[in-house]
């Protein structure tokens, strides 16, 4: 499983989370359902949510709208077609404010 976030550096506004799923033999894992959630490192802030769509076999993308500068934690909740569930965390440090 590989994840990428763009653009870099991440700024306040839209960002794309790309998640590539493959099994142990590097075969793409298709038809997974992925929801993405962003939380700030500080409690009490508004979380952000998005649903990823499969853009090519095994490749999923989601648009997250970072609404505040600072450190974020992005959680990918993955439900595989066979019913298994995975959760992956990416720390997105230093999302830059636009002002």
């Amino acid at each position: 499983m590989q994840e990428m976030i763009s653009p870099q550096p991440v700024r306040v506004g839209q960002a794309t989370i790309a998640i590539q799923l493959a099994d142990a033999s590097a075969k793409p894992v298709t038809h997974a359902k992925i929801s993405v959630e962003g939380d700030m490192s500080h409690p009490g802030m508004s979380p952000i949510f998005a649903t990823a769509t499969e853009t090519s076999p095994g490749m999923y993308t989601a648009q997250l709208d970072f609404n505040m500068g600072g450190d974020w934690v992005v959680l990918s909740h993955i439900a595989l077609a066979d019913g298994r569930k995975l959760e992956r965390r990416i720390d997105v440090s230093g999302v830059e404010s636009n002002q």
Binding site: S41, G69, G70, S93, G94, S97, N98, Q99
Partner: peptide, 13 residues
């Protein structure tokens, strides 16, 4: 009036 920018480490960025 500043935009809030909660970072976990001051040295980040």
């Amino acid at each position: 009036t500043q935009p809030m920018d909660m970072r976990a480490t001051l040295m980040a960025g």
